[in-house]
Design a protein around this nucleic acid. Structure first.
Lengths: 195, 195
DNA sequence: CGTCTATTTGAATGTACTCAAAAGCGGTGG
DNA sequence: CCACCGCTTTTGAGTACATTCAAATAGACG
């Protein structure tokens, strides 16, 4: 895909929450970086530090955590027009304990932290935009804590299908299970039972 | 407790993360409000909007959510020198869906959002302080999502005792159960089993 | 002391996990 | 183009973790 078209997608996405001026778009464009990941490639892994914001132009990604028993726990999934990151590492500047991985061949637009924070001073709409995004990340996490406590696995699965409408078909079922916090066997059982 | 002593506690607390100047402290002091809550009194309830940051000077509080089945799910607990809020409502300005309640007679220092955001411009250390606090709130939530997925109830109970060291004795056990996401009966059973 | 609320106990049940094996599916090389 | 390989999903039996409901006991507070 042409760079121009990729930028247009990002701008359109940002304009859903704030209003960028012509010069704002220009300044924003000047800090963008473009990256392609092949299937299964890692963007972030334990020990590395997240120093960009990452917008998915095309493809699918996830962030996940590996527990002491070697089990994967998927925290976030994303496709076109979603942001993906380890926000903890990005915000704190500390090393990540998570993996962020491409599930398909994926095209990203990256916004390096240093340049982005500099840009905030000149284009406050961008600053507002990310404040809003970080707030919704917080809210989404809180929803998830509540969901995990008040709903059983099948209800959570339905919520998932709602929140991640178009993503379900593109992601292996064992990853969905690891997002829901159940075993792949049990998710398979649930799907059969309710079909 | 004297107002002066209360302010001193708050300043000491903030100075753990940033360094306040003399004039910074003065400006901060000028926006503070003081509130007392009796046991079981609600600071925030569904429909209301959180428009202050709340520092616990003395006492104990919790935030909780009521699900469709009428079950309580405790999201946060706090005692002296902790902050308590519905951050979702505070940050978004939208109506809360949660309760924030005093578990004992409690003395709060409140920082009204409007004045606080104005203060950010004049005392950037305060702005930094809250950025750090909101980041740790995000991190704590993320930890909790991971914990809920990768640990059984007894492990979560031990984590709880660690994180909330001095709080355990002051809070009824059914509230701890509602924080862990188990029934009071099952928590009672676990405690006996491992004693 | 009595009342109200919180905690414990126990039996029956349900939800989810483990382990093992079979079936399905997609990509690759011959 | 088909056969095979590796990975994902399904199936099933046995088990463990956690809930529900009911009742007994313990604690707190006026």
């Amino acid at each position: 895909m042409e760079i121009e078209d990729q930028i247009a997608l990002l701008v359109e996405h940002i304009n859903k929450d704030v209003t960028l001026s012509k010069t704002g778009i220009k300044k924003l464009s000047s800090i963008l970086q473009f990256k392609t990941l092949h299937k299964k490639e890692l963007l972030i892994e334990p020990g590395s530090t997240a120093n960009t914001m990452n917008f998915i132009v095309q493809g699918a990604m996830r962030s996940y955590y590996l527990d002491e028993n070697g089990q994967e726990h998927t925290l976030q999934l994303g496709i076109e027009q979603w942001w993906i990151n380890d926000l903890y590492s990005y915000l704190s500047g500390k090393a990540s304990r998570m993996y962020v991985q491409a599930l398909e061949r994926t095209w990203l637009i990256q916004l390096p932290k240093t340049e982005l924070e500099e840009l905030y001073h000149h284009v406050p709409e961008v600053s507002n935009f990310f404040r809003i995004k970080i707030q919704s990340a917080y809210v989404a996490l809180q929803e998830r804590v509540i969901e995990n406590m008040s709903e059983d696995a099948y209800e959570r699965y339905n919520n998932f299908r709602n929140t991640y409408k178009n993503i379900e078909q593109r992601v292996p079922q064992y990853i969905i299970a690891s997002y829901l916090g159940v075993t792949p066997e049990f998710l398979s059982y649930l799907r059969k039972k309710h079909s």
